[in-house]
Simulated assay, not measured.
Amino acid sequence: MAYRIAQERRITNTVTTVDGQTFGALFRMLTDEDLTRLANEDGGKAAIRATVIELTDIENEDGQPIPYTPKILEAVISFPSDALAIQRAYNEAVFKAAMGN
């Protein structure tokens, strides 16, 4: 199989928060250069904003599903532990993709 240079590579993973809640994430893979540049902007949130395409299985306080919007991402990453959970899920997904899984 030939190697194709893709304009955008997408990966998915489950995000697990410190209190055991889970939700899905669809990520855009960034180049090392872009990730390094964004990693230190806004406490790492710039990298999260650049990588997250969509979050799934998000509910409001009443347990009702809510559609993904950029405001939802901002609400989630306003909690430092949840921002770290998203970063961890991204890194795990990149590793799994590199290993061919």
Rank of each mutant, 00 (worst) to 15 (best):
D62W: 09
A2H: 11
E74P: 03
G100N: 06
E54M: 06
L26T: 14
R28S: 05
L73C: 05
G44C: 02
G100V: 03
N101A: 07
R49P: 00
Y90G: 06
I11K: 00
T69H: 10
I5L: 11
S78H: 13
T16K: 08
Q64H: 10
E61K: 12
L38H: 06
R37K: 14
A85C: 06
G44V: 00
Y3G: 10
L73A: 03
F79H: 13
L30I: 02
R37N: 08
A25K: 09
A50E: 09
M99D: 13
N91Q: 14
A6D: 13
V18M: 09
E92K: 07
A85L: 01
M29D: 00
G20S: 15
A25R: 07
M1G: 15
K71E: 15
A89W: 04
T17E: 11
M99H: 07
A25F: 08
F27Y: 09
A2K: 14
V52I: 12
N101Q: 14
L26H: 12
Q64C: 01
Y90K: 09
N13G: 00
P65A: 02
M29E: 15
T51L: 02
A85Y: 01
R9D: 08
G20D: 15
T17S: 12
T14C: 03
G100Y: 03
F27I: 07
Q87Y: 04
D57Y: 02
F79S: 14
L26C: 07
